[in-house]
Design a protein around this nucleic acid. Structure first.
Lengths: 252, 252
DNA sequence: ACAAAAGTGTTCCTCATACACCCATGA
DNA sequence: TCATGGGTGTATGAGGAACACTTTTGT
């Protein structure tokens, strides 16, 4: 401390990284998906350890030396879910000084999009008591959503840390993305029908869209490329399968 | 180090912030403005000290304990320019492990918007050899822009650190914001004419806009509120002055 | 009167919306 | 042949682009 004062008093550099206390830097992940039933879901872990033991929270972990924040996010996602090669976007930092009761921790929140057909690949890590993709229903009052487990139980109380804020921010980013992109390719399987795409957008926005308008818009933007294949489902006409157009590969 | 291994081997927490090396966390600022002449400018400092001594770079500084990243950005802006109460938005983190030759430093880039009528308030700090708002001309090849000092001299070579990337990112964010908001209120004085607003948007986008279309769009969106006052300039009809509508205060 | 910038009206065109209708399939 | 979802056409209206025009000032 005396050293810092000395440096400052003699008009020295304020730019030497070594002289200041340093925070831990973490990544927290909003891992979102749309289930086969068309529900918007997000991955939550029930914490085993303090702080917030027994409370639900987003998956997260610390950034290690020698890796970038993005690499850390990918690694944490792999460790906690076994998933690789999913779309990962940085949201923003969450850095209120008291957001972690243990220490000074700055978190860089990320949004991860998991295609529905890869939900079954998820192998939760050992750090949590329970890991579930929870249904996310929009609500008017804060924090802006209600969470239910797959079994239907409402998740009580706020999430651990400031994860309610992070989740709300991720949700709002997801809604924004889906209106501008306007396909959340990260949530789609490699080959998909336009109806599947529309169901996903509808799940995220929480409202129905016009079929014809959706199709013409998607096709006119040139974001998708038709394949020769078809998807045969129930007792109805087969649907043409599409892939994301060049430059829109899921892995980016 | 042995302690970390032990904790991991006995299946202990990976969540204890204390056991890992910690990075320094910095903020770097893209301080943008549109000059009275209608040129898009950005604040650069000529570095006095290593690393990159003698090279131009964005203003930046470290996040201190007890403050959030946003507070750090506001403080650094105040220290380097004397400006307060300007719009400050987080861009994203820049965290390549070798981005700072001195040490492990993660930077959170921010975009600061300075109204043209406050450019004269800027009192550069002592840390830099020279501080200038430099003209930013878009270019096709990377890094996507050419920089000139106010005197007209071209700024040679890349900026220090990864600040070329940060500046390019800030510029693209600014262009995006101005098309969606669709007014960069942070760049406008408290009271402004619609022509002033249009000139700023044109400077950022680098192209002319239709006067009638701009006016009807701005007014129909209800983003501005007319005042009783007028701005009398040269030999021409006075312009009505507007303010940002409620909820769009510059200070946010 | 004229220049210069503020401010408005008009026409054209594109595109989103809503809705109706046909198509292909399994049962 | 019927139910189901895939796929397409068409009318309507809102909003953006381009351009011409009027208004108000200082000189």
């Amino acid at each position: 401390m005396a050293k810092i004062t000395t440096r400052r008093e003699r008009g020295g550099s304020e730019q030497d990284p070594a002289v200041y206390p340093r925070p831990s830097v973490a990544v927290d992940l909003v891992v979102a998906s749309v289930s086969a039933e068309g529900a918007l879901v997000v991955l939550l872990l029930k914490r085993k350890e303090r702080p917030f033991a027994g409370r639900w929270a987003l998956p997260g972990g610390f950034v290690h030396q020698g890796e970038s924040v993005g690499m850390a996010a990918a690694r944490v996602l792999r460790e906690k879910t076994g998933l690789d090669d999913v779309e990962l976007d940085e949201l923003r930092t969450f850095s209120e000084p008291d957001r972690d009761p243990r220490a000074w921790v700055i978190s860089v929140a990320h949004l991860a999009l998991v295609p529905a057909d890869r939900l079954s690949d998820v192998k939760p890590g050992r750090a949590a008591e329970d890991a579930q993709f929870c249904l996310l229903a929009p609500r008017d009052e804060p924090p802006g959503f209600t969470l239910r487990t797959a079994a239907g139980a409402v998740i009580e109380g706020p999430l651990g840390f400031d994860h309610d804020s992070i989740l709300a921010h991720g949700l709002s980013r997801l809604r924004h993305r889906v209106t501008t992109t306007p396909l959340a390719f990260g949530l789609l399987p490699r080959r998909f029908t336009l109806s599947e795409a529309q169901r996903i957008v509808e799940a995220i926005l929480g409202r129905k869209l016009d079929k014809a308008a959706f199709r013409t818009k998607i096709l006119s933007l040139g974001l998708v490329r038709p394949t020769e294949e078809e998807k045969r489902g129930g007792a109805h006409r087969p649907a043409k399968l599409y892939v994301a157009a060049k430059g829109w590969d899921v892995a980016r």
